[in-house]
């Protein structure tokens, strides 16, 4: 059973994904980097979650990455309010394993 603090970390990520989805008008947001582990392991050890940023990109609307970056990126009001933020990741510049789409997990819906 995860502790309250660990559960909140997962909730933080879900909140960030929902915000990115609304701004990017995309129902599929890919999370890249250390925080992606929360998708499979909500109670991941804190040593793996050492930063306040979560790398994201909208899978179907990559052109909206800049909007997400501006609205909930570093230095944004979202960042100031919640203490964490979205880091824009360019899909083309990310080194992804072939077939990563099939290996990704659904973290939250709606």
């Amino acid at each position: 059973m995860p502790s309250v603090c660990e559960f909140m970390k997962r909730l933080d990520l879900e909140y960030l994904i929902r915000a990115a989805g609304k701004i990017g008008q995309d129902s599929e947001i890919v999370v890249i980097g250390s925080h992606a582990i929360l998708g499979q392991f909500p109670d991941a050890p804190e040593s793996l979650l050492t930063s306040a940023e979560a790398g994201v990109f909208p899978l179907n609307r990559p052109e909206k990455s800049n909007l997400i970056d501006g609205a909930i990126g570093e230095g944004s009001r979202f960042h100031q309010e919640y203490g964490y933020y979205a880091l824009r990741c360019a899909r083309m510049r990310s080194v992804l394993q072939r077939g990563y789409e099939n290996q990704s997990l659904t973290c939250c819906e709606g």
Binding site: M8, S47, T50, A52, Y82, G83
Partner: peptide, 18 residues
């Protein structure tokens, strides 16, 4: 002030970077 506000959000166990 930011640190204080974030501290309130993370209850009794803030993240290591905090």
């Amino acid at each position: 002030q930011n640190m204080e506000r974030w501290r309130a959000r993370w209850s009794d166990k803030p993240p290591p970077w905090w």
